[in-house]
């Protein structure tokens, strides 16, 4: 019986040890680590990318210590809400839908979305145009109609729970067959293998893949922004955390004035994506 008691006590002790209490002054920032060049993981298992660098810069300005927490994309918002971390910096665009659940800081960078196909595909290469879905003119509409025709019945891959998936589901591009993936890496693999006809993601995500895999993809159609694509990428913060929201907003202001965001964007994206 004594032995039994001992085991039971050590079990309970172990349980509380593992649960622990994580409260401290340290700000924890969640990122995905699978969306290069925004955020990724290198061969030593370290989180890298534009947002990882920027997060540390912002924390330096705020005078806080920070740690980066890895979190799968599909559990990002639930994890923020349950308190696993305090802020999201994961290439997450500011959209009305997400604003219902969490707050966003001002945007720190902007991304445009683009379709990509594997080289040799019959779908035509890039039109130089960019379309802002908030202000569609007749020429834009023509481009959209042409895309609708080219993509009719085609299989298009996107990462699950993204603005890109929402856009395809909105019907603005007509009836397409949408396949969803857990990560952008998986989308790229299946696109390169030829399992899907096209993919939709941030243009830089495809450019990054091209630079690593040897230019196997072509970006096609116009680039997209506005509308379902939201208004830039910002820091996601819990609804009741207004102090942290203010801190992030002012630190982004400072970082922008000092040219830090621009410098990091050019380092990771190859152009100035700051906003």
């Amino acid at each position: 019986m004594r032995m039994l008691n001992k085991t039971l006590i050590s079990f309970i002790a172990l349980f509380f040890l593992l649960i622990g209490n994580s409260y401290s002054d340290n700000i924890k920032i969640g990122t995905e680590g699978a969306y290069p060049p925004w955020n990724a993981k290198d061969a030593s298992g370290k989180l890298i990318g534009f947002e990882v660098d920027l997060a540390f810069e912002l924390c330096k300005i705020m005078g806080h210590s920070c740690s980066i927490v890895e979190q799968d994309w599909d559990g990002m918002i639930p994890a923020l809400q349950s308190g696993k971390f305090d802020a999201i910096m994961a290439g997450m665009s500011i959209t009305d839908e997400r604003k219902k659940k969490i707050n966003f800081s001002q945007g720190y960078a902007d991304e445009v979305a683009s379709f990509a196909v594997v080289k040799g595909s019959k779908i035509k290469p890039r039109t130089v145009k960019s379309i802002n879905l908030n202000e569609i003119d007749s020429a834009d509409q023509k481009t959209l109609d042409a895309l609708k025709k080219a993509f009719e019945g085609k299989i298009i891959g996107v990462q699950t729970g993204t603005i890109h998936q929402n856009f395809l589901k909105s019907g603005q591009i007509g009836k397409v067959n949408v396949w969803t993936y857990k990560t952008q890496d998986e989308v790229n693999l299946d696109l390169a293998a030829g399992r899907i006809d096209a993919a939709l993601a941030a243009a830089v995500a495809f450019e990054d893949y091209n630079s690593k895999a040897g230019n196997v993809l072509n970006l096609v159609g116009p680039t997209f922004s506005g509308g379902t694509f939201g208004s830039g990428v910002g820091v996601g913060i819990r609804k009741n955390d207004s102090q942290l929201l203010n801190d992030f907003n002012s630190s982004i202001d400072t970082a922008r004035k000092k040219g830090i965001i621009k410098k990091l964007a050019i380092k990771h994206f190859g152009f100035d994506a700051s906003m």
Partner: peptide
């Protein structure tokens, strides 16, 4: 999974 995605060698 991470290595496969990063190296494109699943």
């Amino acid at each position: 999974y991470i290595a496969a995605g990063s190296t494109r060698n699943p």
